[in-house]
Write a protein that binds this DNA or RNA. Structure first.
Length: 263
DNA sequence: CGACACTCCTGATGGC
DNA sequence: TGCCATCAGGAGTGTC
């Protein structure tokens, strides 16, 4: 499941190939991808525009196009972006054509989305409505995390998965960060001590950075734009390690549910 | 505010 | 071997 490190891995690989190029065509094969906007309408808004920058916010990949048009792609559960794949991969939902490159949005479960923001204000409104602070920005720090946890009695795992509390953390990195910080996933957010929120802040940042350094985690679907798997799954401390010895105490890792997710 | 159910979707898995 | 039910989950919405 692509989370911040996986989307960042895609962005880094893709940016040099798409920035400065023109989106000659955007062929949307699955109307669900951009619903409720009609595929023709979205394509028309994008086609012919230069890609000024490929950026990321949380788990959104943002195509910053000339004329202040922004295309926000979200991979959700099973989305991948493949650059110049051989032939047409199964479950291709969208094709970009940029110069000599073709790019496929492949998504077996069809949860992935493409949305449009016209103008910087619309982009800002779109993001502000959905996302909290970016984990690597100054806006996310020990003090701000501590302050925002005060307002929530939800289990800290649910808190971390809430994109409005901190952007980009999903199930993998929530598990890894909580373990690193030594905080129980079901502990109410407002009952973490200052020391614990400080630990957790560091653990969230460190886990995400380790994920980026490992070029993402591949559980089953994730590939970078060249089709290469990430390696962070080899460094999981607890995620998907049910029954294996705990790296800290040696007892078997137990799996339970928190916030409706395997934990 | 939060818990929970439901929706979207389909490949993988497990039971028989 | 084959069939079927169940599960997985990111995000949005709605109910209580």
């Amino acid at each position: 499941m692509p989370e911040l490190p996986e989307v960042e891995t895609i962005r880094r690989n893709l940016a040099p190939h798409v920035e400065g190029r023109r989106v000659e065509s955007l062929e949307i094969l699955d109307a669900r991808w951009c619903r409720p906007i009609a595929p023709a309408e979205l394509s028309a808004a994008v086609e012919g525009r230069m890609v000024e920058r490929l950026s990321r916010r949380g788990k959104y990949l943002i195509w910053e196009l000339e004329g202040d048009v922004f295309l926000l792609a979200h991979l959700r559960m099973t989305g991948t972006l493949l650059l110049d794949p051989a032939g047409a991969p199964p479950h291709t939902r969208v094709w970009w054509r940029l110069g000599e490159h073709r790019l496929a949005f492949v998504d077996p479960r069809r949860f992935g989305t493409g949305e449009l923001a016209l103008g910087p204000e619309a982009l800002e409104a779109f993001l502000a409505r959905r996302l909290g602070p970016e984990p690597f920005s100054e806006a996310f720090n020990a003090a701000s995390l501590h302050a925002s946890t005060r307002a929530s009695r939800a289990p800290i795992k649910a808190f971390l998965l809430d994109q409005r509390k901190v952007a980009g953390v999903g199930n993998i990195y929530a598990d890894e960060a909580l373990f690193r910080a030594g905080v129980h996933p079901l502990r109410p957010a407002n009952r973490l001590t200052r020391k614990q929120t400080e630990e957790l802040h560091g653990a969230v940042v460190a886990s995400l950075q380790a994920g980026i350094d490992a070029k993402g985690a591949t559980i089953d679907d994730f590939r970078d734009p060249y089709g290469v798997q990430g390696s962070f799954q080899d460094q999981f401390l607890v995620h998907l390690r049910e029954g294996e010895p705990c790296p800290a105490c040696g007892r078997a890792v137990r799996k339970q549910r928190a916030a409706g997710r395997g934990t």
